[in-house]
Design a protein around this nucleic acid. Sequence first.
DNA 1: GTTCTATTTGAACGTGTGTTCATATAAGCT
DNA 2: AGCTTATATGAACACACGTTCAAATAGAAC
Lengths: 195, 195
Amino acid sequence: MARTQGSHSDITGPRIRKAALHLFARYGYAAVSMRQIAAEVGVQAGALYNYTPDKQSLLYRLMRDHMEELLAAQKALPSQDCALDALRQFVGFHIRFHMQRPEEVFIAYMELRNLTPENFAEIEALRRDYEDALQGILVAGQAEGVFALQDAKIATLAVIAMLNGVMTWYRAGGRLSLDQVERIYWDMVRKAVAA
Amino acid sequence: MARTQGSHSDITGPRIRKAALHLFARYGYAAVSMRQIAAEVGVQAGALYNYTPDKQSLLYRLMRDHMEELLAAQKALPSQDCALDALRQFVGFHIRFHMQRPEEVFIAYMELRNLTPENFAEIEALRRDYEDALQGILVAGQAEGVFALQDAKIATLAVIAMLNGVMTWYRAGGRLSLDQVERIYWDMVRKAVAA
DNA sequence: GTTCTATTTGAACGTGTGTTCATATAAGCT
DNA sequence: AGCTTATATGAACACACGTTCAAATAGAAC
């Protein structure tokens, strides 16, 4: 049981991250030990330290990678002609992206308080970037006259909170398809911000 | 430092619960030790066990008391003539009740996974009771023809998720008064479920 | 087939965990 | 003033924690 250059190393690293992801999502960062993560990978605890400087970095990197993926995917969306289309696209994107990564999403807002202050600030900045994208759409829609909002910032947070609620109940194979879920939420969001 | 019948006992008990509330809300159940709680109260760790059988019960009782208070207060609301008024009343109640207990609210949905299965089932039942009250209003409104919902259950969860979002950003003394916040959210909820 | 080195082990470090319990203490009752 | 008893102490229990590191190991390179 030793190395295989660019083999064990390339395999163990991702497996550790995946195990940490599952366990943090299931039991919470503080309740999961390095030994549990190691056991899930099939390795001794000491071996983890070839891949992460410490437990905190394991959490931070999971969150940062998730947020950066989210931002990159959002920025890659095709631009739309009107705010209504942009909002529809955003709602569909948000629901689908998050549905595909329930564990990352769960960790990303349950474990914020377990980040060191510096790490927290970085993640929080990424989150604000994402919120700003939605807020931009809402403000543009107000200018177009298709949206009517008493407060754009609060509307932004309200829409995201509502959409994130999907995560708490949706289970693949349940009574509703993803398409249906998307339609239902789009209907509510559209009406909530409508002029 | 010993007892005062119906004095130390009546004082230490609540102080322990209050300390646990603050610390669990701030750092999370798993990250808080019995010794930290004891230190906050100004007592040794062993003394806590005169007031709680174990750490788990401390968490469970905080959550159960909170949920029962919430349910009792909700059931005590005056009945309304129409679903629209009932929904407006519910939105106002929900926002104000939760704003007054940010720590209890935070714990009640961040620490669910740290409950034993039996305790979790009980809390979850209480939560469902509360959701059912809102769902009843929405269904009644559909019958009256004032609400139009593709799916009443999802609308219920969406409204609650949206309202709970307030907790993540509202700070007393911020740029918006509670009345303003209530108006803004009521505006969005009303439109989201409107026929 | 030998050497080299990336990778893993396994034990150890110091500290902290939830919980228990014999002992000490001080207030209430008579 | 003395007795009783509710309350709190403080040490101890067995175990778990994150992290470190010398030593062992096994694939890659020659």
